[in-house]
């Protein structure tokens, strides 16, 4: 079966930032996410470091990514298809299989590696 490809990762997809500005997905930069979180209220950007990448035993075709998230270094695990792009701080779009990402989305990616720090979002803690 064909994988379900969220079309927001297709090259050329129009993304609305929290500032109202529109950008193509391939033109996004780290600052766009940081600024958007700042003005959105209630959301904040976390730094999520990739600490392990494995192929899933339970769900063939998926990869299991282990992250340590935020200042508390909480451990979070997610299963994703290898073509799923993540935005790495200072580097841009990255996936476990840049070849598949290019095939399916047309989006140019770096190779996601252990040690990469990805942009993730979480709820802002009340003061």
């Amino acid at each position: 079966p064909a994988p379900s490809n969220p079309s927001h990762f297709m090259k050329g997809a129009i993304i609305q930032l929290a500032t109202g500005e529109l950008k193509r997905v391939e033109d996004l930069q780290t600052q766009d996410f940081v600024r958007s979180a700042e003005v959105s209220g209630g959301l904040k950007i976390d730094s999520s470091m990739v600490v392990d990448i494995r192929t899933s035993q339970q769900r063939p075709g998926l990869v299991v990514l282990h992250f340590t998230v935020g200042e508390q270094q909480s451990k979070v695990t997610i299963d994703v298809p290898p073509e799923h792009p993540f935005f790495v701080f200072g580097q841009g779009w990255s996936s476990c299989s840049p070849e598949r990402t290019a095939q399916l989305y047309g989006l140019a990616c770096h190779h996601l590696q252990v040690g990469d720090v990805c942009v993730s979002i979480t709820l802002q803690q009340p003061p």
Binding site: Q16, V25, D32, S36, D46, S48, V76, F86, C118
Partner: peptide, 19 residues
């Protein structure tokens, strides 16, 4: 042309709080 919100592109990773 569809327009997607910025927050749909990055994962929501909620750390599990333990206090």
């Amino acid at each position: 042309v569809p327009v997607f919100p910025w927050h749909s592109l990055v994962p929501f990773l909620a750390p599990t709080q333990s206090d």
